[in-house]
């Protein structure tokens, strides 16, 4: 009996620590993010957003892009008193994510964001049960209107657009005419990006070779690093890649002095000398628009798409790496072409 007790205590401790690091329990998060003492001082209650993410808020990729946007909107609106943010990260298990989405809805959050295509089914179920709560789903275009749901926003990023621009830059910077792509899984956002990237390279330099590899995983940092190594050995002098695993690949690029083009978040900090430019997802506008709509009583129905034209996608250059003017000019021309529709980014 004594043994059992100690054992249980150990597990509780272990789980508590795990929970602290990845607050799966929504109850804990609001307490941390919005101290109860401050809330009553305000005349109006804060707007409350909860988000469920497949990876961590520090992944320098998909999840961090959205989390950073929420934080910047929060700062703009006047801090935690005006906008409360609760999050559950590393929810790679869809069942865990489903539970978290339901908990947040039951907690009375104004907007619950399901930040992963794979969460769709679970979120639709919860959204049916909580018609007063607003939900957002990405990467997706379906707002559930066909099913009679009016409380769902959908959002996606036209990753192919920035991919195309990155492809143009890569093609012009490459001397070997071999470019490597470290992909995660051949689907969703990553596939869009890679397809756009390839088109960008081909349209600019038809004789260049784009080698694409997938690790079959979003988080296999070690394998992504080795993939980068292989690309370099196969002759690539420019690399790009997608998902949180690329932090390993950027390291390899840095070690070998090979240029890197980032996507999703700004990855310059990982390789200040080799990261040329990043396609950055700028969700701030989307988040602000959703908040405004909800406050106006419109709980869903809009599908957002980040594009270069609407400012949701930004090509951020690293000022520490010199990019020739003609390359920049070509990239700008590509952006203009995509914005006015004269360039198609997909086959």
């Amino acid at each position: 009996m004594y043994r059992r007790l100690i054992l249980m205590a150990t597990f509780v401790l272990a789980l508590a620590l795990a929970a602290c690091a990845a607050p799966a329990a929504p109850a804990a998060a609001p307490a941390a993010d919005a101290p109860a003492a401050e809330a009553p001082a305000e005349t109006s209650d804060p707007f409350r957003i909860a988000i469920v993410m497949p990876s961590s808020t520090t992944d320098l990729a998909w999840s961090q892009a959205m989390y950073d946007a929420l934080k910047s909107v929060q700062a703009e609106m006047g801090g935690e008193a005006s906008l409360e943010i609760a999050y559950s990260e590393n929810m790679f298990q869809v069942t865990d994510a489903a539970a978290a989405i339901r908990d947040y809805a039951a907690e009375g959050f104004d907007l619950v964001i399901a930040h992963g295509t794979q969460y769709g089914n679970s979120m639709f179920e919860v959204a049916t049960d909580f018609p007063e709560t607003s939900f957002a789903w990405g990467t997706a275009v379906d707002t559930g209107t066909e099913q009679g749901l009016e409380n769902i926003f959908a959002y996606e990023a036209a990753a192919d657009e920035g991919g195309y621009v990155n492809g143009v830059i890569a093609a012009l910077l490459s001397e070997a005419n071999v470019i490597g792509v470290v992909g995660p899984v051949e689907a969703g956002d990553a596939k869009l990006y890679i397809d756009g990237f390839k088109k960008g390279v081909m349209d600019t330099k038809p004789d260049a070779v784009v080698n694409v590899s997938f690790t079959g995983n979003f988080g296999d940092t070690a394998l992504a690093a080795e993939a980068a190594n292989v690309h370099i050995q196969a002759g690539a002098d420019i690399l790009t890649g997608s998902a949180q695993q690329v932090v390993g690949a950027v390291g390899v690029a840095k070690e070998n002095g090979v240029k890197w083009l980032g996507t999703q978040s700004d990855q310059t900090s990982l390789g200040p000398d080799v990261v040329v430019a990043n396609q950055v997802y700028e969700w701030t506008g989307t988040v602000k628009d959703m908040i405004a709509k909800i406050q106006a009583g419109e709980l869903g129905g809009t599908a957002y798409n980040l594009t270069l034209a609407n400012g949701g996608l930004v090509i951020a250059y690293n000022s520490a790496v010199a990019v020739p003017d003609d390359v920049k000019a070509a990239a700008d021309a590509a952006i203009a072409g995509i914005e006015d529709g004269s360039i198609t980014t997909m086959e």
């Binding site: 620590l17 690091a21 900090s269 990982l270």
Partner: peptide, 24 residues
């Protein structure tokens, strides 16, 4: 498995509090 979860959780927690973002 408990030890695994403990290590996973604690390393994430320490990373968030002591470092905060992916650095090299």
């Amino acid at each position: 498995i408990g030890l695994y979860l403990f290590g996973l959780g604690l390393s994430s927690l320490l990373f968030k509090t002591l470092i905060g973002s992916v650095e090299s």
